[in-house]
Design a protein around this nucleic acid. Sequence first.
DNA 1: ATCCGGGCGA
DNA 2: TCGCCGGGAT
Length: 343
Amino acid sequence: MTNTDRLALDALHFDSTALHQALLDWYAAHGRDLPWRHTRDPYAILVSEVMLQQTQVERVVGKYLTFLAAFPTFAMLAAASPEEVIRAWAPLGYNQRAIRLRRIAQTIVEDRGGQVPTTIADLLTLPGVGRYTAGAVACFAHGQAVAMVDINIQRVLTRILIGDFSTEASVYQTPARALMLAEAALPAIPSAAYAWNQALMDLGATICNARQPHCERCPVAAYCATYAQLASQALFPSGQAWQQLARVAEASAPYHARPRIPFKGSTRYGRGRILAALRAVTPGTPLSLRAIGPTVKDDFTDADLDWLRDLAQSLVRDGLAEWASASRADRPMLDEYLRLPKS
DNA sequence: ATCCGGGCGA
DNA sequence: TCGCCGGGAT
């Protein structure tokens, strides 16, 4: 804890009631109506939180509903084949999440008597569950007053409580420090933690945007250190003024942007295209690498087979595909046929 | 072409 | 600690 941290937490302690009340009131009136906020079923909450990893809310809503319709319980998901789950996951991406979710279901059913872990430490033992997801399940399913930090919560709390705009991205960049801040910021009343955490994420998604915050509509501007800082400079922190400041901050502390490889042609792109090809055929049908190739790379030739095979093997390693063990005469090279995993 | 934004394994 | 893991919207 630095002195800055202490000051921020002291300041929070001073008028935290007003801050909490303002944000909770706003959430009650303007919070988003999301399907996973109507349930406390640990299975449904877990599905939603895994889907929400690296994926925007709008893209999750529909898939959350259809996935739950297809696999309503841990038992149903555990009994499904990887192929079925991978198909049901599209088009969310980061497909290992689907495989890990199925493995979680099998663990819950086979080893844990159908019960989802309740402590964060125990939740963290589940594959694909890190500190954010563990906290979300503990809070949103089990009603615990625990903190969690996603990128929205980190940004919102840093802006409100720390407020040094020029170092916004760096001051609380380490996960441990951000989590300490989030824990210190929890409401005094344990039962308010659910709404508080949801409210922080809503505020970050709809008002306190990364690039262009709408402070003129923010329910907690009066308690926001960043707002006070910018207002004191007579720069109303919205719209162009904010963007101007962002450019200045970036110029003074240039961040090291890595040279970006074009998405098309990347490993991620290729893996996604292979899975798309495998999903496009009748379940259980193997596809040859030569058949898949042209859907992955323009002007695919046999010279690209080694590259494609390595890509396919990476999917096999991740449990997202398997080599078909066909014995038919028209499949002379067994390991050249790929399909979605049967088990 | 850029933006979005957790978990894992080397 | 860093690089990898996908898609759709804009």
